[in-house]
């Protein structure tokens, strides 16, 4: 398991969720060959903190550099789409526009690839450029086992292994949270983008009116 795991709340006490306990429990459900085994830390206190790579080619620590103290909207995606791309991405473009200047200042958007084997930083950069992604929205890839750990830790999974194996399924949820307050929720990716913004506004304490109010200019 990732020894870089960090607490993400000060409240949470980690004493019992030690490596041994997790290891012992992990194989209960596992009938799969695994080498190395990515672990999902229980959502009672930790997100993994692996090194991941941005579409700009920068190596960053996932929790320390991207999540800590921030309001975030995290999706999973894939760049290998020539004919049809994940519909959620189209929605997120509109979310980016609606958030305007808040992006990269108050709200940070991340899209983690579901296919780190092929989505290199260079591929993700082309993909981001194709979509007109602006600063404040970062695409991420990394070692497959690290990405798999992140996928589970963030809740982009299905308990049924057969369903879970359809990786493209996981491109339809947005994990939304305020890490400073350890407050997490989600939005379906395919709702009206106004509703995604509204969910972000719900956890962003600086926003009074949760509904997205379009700028009138």
């Amino acid at each position: 398991m990732d020894t870089d795991d960090k607490m993400f709340t000060r409240r949470t006490l980690l004493a019992g969720f030690g490596v041994a306990a997790l290891g012992a429990l992990a194989f209960q459900r596992s009938m799969l060959d695994r080498e190395p085994v990515p672990q999902r830390a229980p959502g009672t206190g930790r997100l993994p903190n692996p090194t991941v790579f941005t579409h700009e080619g920068k190596a960053v620590k996932f929790y320390d550099d991207l999540i800590r103290d921030k309001v975030v909207a995290i999706s999973m995606t894939y760049a290998q789409c020539t004919a049809t791309c994940p519909a959620t991405m189209g929605n997120l473009i509109r979310v980016q526009d609606m958030l305007g200047e808040r992006i990269g200042r108050d709200v940070f958007m991340y899209s983690i690839t579901l296919f780190p084997e092929v989505d290199t930083p260079r591929v993700l950069k082309q993909y981001a450029e194709k979509f007109g992604v602006k600063p404040g929205w970062t695409f991420l890839t990394g070692a497959p086992s690290d990405i798999e750990s992140l996928r589970f830790a963030l809740g982009f999974y299905d308990l049924d292994p057969a369903v879970d194996a359809i990786r493209t399924q996981h491109a339809n949820m947005i994990r939304i949270g305020n890490a400073a307050y350890d407050r997490w929720t989600m939005s379906p990716g395919l709702v009206r983008p106004e509703l995604i913004v509204s969910t972000i506004n719900h956890v962003d304490r600086s926003v009074v009116h949760t509904a997205h109010i379009p700028a009138t200019a």
Partner: peptide, 10 residues
């Protein structure tokens, strides 16, 4: 096949 699994909480 997915290598990860949800860890069962104690």
């Amino acid at each position: 096949k997915s290598e990860a699994q949800a860890v069962v909480l104690p």
